[in-house]
Design a protein around this nucleic acid. Structure first.
Ligand code: DGT
Ligand code: MG
Ligand code: MG
Ligand code: ZN
Length: 562
DNA sequence: GCCGTTTTCGGCCCGACTGTTTTCAGTCG
């Protein structure tokens, strides 16, 4: 999958064009780069379908460049730009405070091409002598150069969640803060989070900033002003704080929640009316405030319904809000069952009894235990004999608990079908299937299993895992059609590393597909992962009706078995 | 370079912080 590679080239082109002082094109290249980076589908497939231009921000020219690169492995336009200023633009601009313009100056004056050159020049004191630079910048470069070498990897929302909650509590705990909201990609429930953005209300912003920059785990203060500060806390995590007045709080929430593209779009709309939208409010052409204290008011004045943060990705939500046709999104309280949990019969850490007790505590009506089939021994795969034992225990537990306990298997899609017999399939309340390797004919294998076995749920459909596994290269159009035909539900996994099916595809297929949101919990605490799956369903524009486990077990059963 | 219930050409979001600068450019959100 070359998405990352291509978006990197586009980002670099943007930087090189900025070096040359070209207007607007850098923004265009960056926008295209961002959208390609965010794709779940392999850009090469989109190229093969001749649909590159459907990607937001990709037009004639960029589509042609991507095609050339995919066909020849080279891009002359990019190579030419790089020849003019032959620097390691990606790494150099990774140094906090260094952008394309500074990199060019340093190249022209000192011939700096790499981070090593930069460090050497800074240590020798040569940077301070360059016009436009000085001692402080030179010092800052030396301080930040190692961070640039390491890079800052994005964090998974499900993993950073406790830390964010704790940080929020710590800030809220200080009297000088009257209101605190976590915003940015976290509020939008992005699967991954680049930094933690915080909006706050305080009548003494100076003192508030002081407290913020002196939190006990602050490692570096990147910037500190009256309304805005940035710090690095332990774990190499950046935290940005913005403080505004109450009259601006709503518009500041909008600004700081983003996304950037959503902001730009919506600000352009305001501008089209001769108004102005910024973090302080919505203003008419006489600078009279039209709204600002509440987000709802700002959207309302712009003749839009309120846009839930999860939808603010500039993927059609603005037009939809203008038409008043945004979906009524599914909520966590709508969820009535969890159709993938595990116990110590396989690689789970808790007994079935413990899992059920906890499920009852969080008001679930039903749960499905579905451990791996026999071919996945490393993941604690069960033999049919072990399954039968488990089945016996399920029967006992069902007598004892109100929660309806269902038993199934996560069967593995293998070369000639599933790794369990059809007889075994019939013993399952629900049959879940998944692919755990990546053969060339994956699409056909999946389709054939859907046709030939009584499949109920297709779990972690793309097999994606953040930072380690790319999504499977399969024909989702075809497979989703088949799930509709066969009454098979598609899982949205709540596991932080998976969140699979991903929200963009969830959105794409939401009218056809029936989704189930599952935790894949391997311990009692992981039952709480449900919130992350629900967030992804919301990002995918799902209403309650598109999610099967918001329904009673009888309704779910009659659909899946029908 | 992209894009269109104002446009197929003429626009392209808006502001804070920093360092170096005598008034602002660069970078970042
Ligand atoms: N209007 C406007 N708002 C911006 C711009 N850049 C960032 N913002 C707003 C929207 C962002 O969601 C918010 C926080 O910025 P971040 O850089 O932290 O981005 P975000 O949190 O969305 O993603 P992240 O996971 O941190 O990479 O600030 C911009 O250029 N213009
Ligand atoms: Mg952020
Ligand atoms: Mg930020
Ligand atoms: Zn699996």
């Amino acid at each position: 999958m070359k998405n990352k590679e291509i978006s990197k080239i586009l980002y670099e082109i943007a930087d090189f064009l900025e070096i040359k002082g070209v207007k607007y094109k850098p923004r265009a290249y960056r926008k295209a780069a961002r959208n390609i980076e965010a794709l779940t589908e392999d850009v090469e497939n989109i190229y093969e379908r001749r649909e590159l231009k459907e990607i937001e921000g990709v037009g004639e020219s960029i589509a042609e460049k991507i095609s050339k690169y995919l066909e020849t492995g080279e891009l002359e336009y990019y190579e030419r730009l790089r020849k003019d200023v032959p620097v390691d633009i990606e790494n150099l601009t990774n140094v906090e405070g260094l952008g394309p313009k500074s990199v060019k100056k340093l190249y022209n004056s000192l011939g700096i091409e790499t981070l090593e050159d930069l460090e050497e020049a800074a240590k020798a004191g040569r940077i301070a002598d360059v016009k436009g630079f000085g001692e402080k910048i030179q010092e800052k470069i030396l301080e930040n150069i190692d961070a640039a070498r390491m890079g800052r990897e994005r964090k998974l929302i499900g993993r950073i969640f406790p830390l964010v909650q704790d940080l929020k509590k710590r800030i809220q705990g200080k009297d000088v803060f009257e209101r605190v909201n976590i915003v940015g990609s976290y509020r939008r429930r992005n699967p991954t989070i680049g930094d933690i953005d915080v909006l706050a209300l305080s009548d003494d912003s100076e003192e508030a900033m002081e407290e913020f920059c002196n939190l006990n785990d602050v490692e570096e203060v990147l910037a500190k002003g009256d309304t805005k500060s940035s710090i690095i806390i332990s774990g190499n995590i950046q935290v940005d704080l913005r403080i505004v007045d109450e009259v601006s709080y709503g518009s500041a929430l909008m600004y700081f929640t983003g996304s950037k593209d959503h902001n730009v779009s919506i600000r352009s709309k305001a501008k089209g009316r001769d108004w102005k939208l910024n973090e302080y409010g919505l203003f008419d052409s006489n600078d009279e405030r039209l709204a600002g204290e509440k987000e709802e008011e700002v959207y309302d004045k712009l003749d839009m319904s309120f846009i839930p943060p999860e939808l603010r990705e500039n993927t059609g939500e603005i037009e939809s809000a203008e038409r008043g046709s945004l979906p009524d999104l599914v909520e966590r309280v709508d969820i009535r069952g969890d159709l993938q949990i595990h116990s110590n019969y396989s690689d789970g850490s808790a007994s079935m009894r413990e899992m059920v007790e906890n499920a009852e505590e969080i008001d679930l009506d039903y749960v499905l235990f579905s451990d791996h089939g026999p071919s996945l021994k490393i993941a604690g795969g069960l033999s049919e004999k072990e399954f039968d034992e488990q089945s016996g225990e399920v029967e006992e537990l069902n007598d004892e608990f109100d929660v309806e306990i269902l038993l199934g298997v996560e069967a593995n899609i293998v070369e000639d079908g599933l790794d369990i017999s059809k007889d075994w399939c019939e013993k399952c309340d629900f049959l879940s299937v998944a692919m755990h390797n990546r053969p060339k004919d994956a699409t056909d294998r999946i389709l054939s299993v859907f046709e030939n076995y009584p499949v109920d749920i297709w779990v972690h459909p793309l097999g994606r895992q953040f930072f380690s596994r790319d999504p499977l290269d399969i024909d989702l159009d075809k497979i989703v059609d088949k799930t509709e035909e066969e009454h098979i539900a598609i899982e949205i996994s709540s596991q932080p590393e998976r969140l699979d099916l991903d929200w963009r595809n969830v959105k794409k297929y939401r009218d056809k597909a029936d989704y189930v949101i599952s935790t894949d919990a391997h311990s009692t605490t992981e039952l709480d992962f449900m919130r992350f799956g629900v967030s992804q369903a919301r990002k995918g524009w799902c209403n309650e009706d598109s999610v099967l486990n918001t329904k009673s077990i009888d309704k779910a059963r009659s659909y899946l078995n029908g």
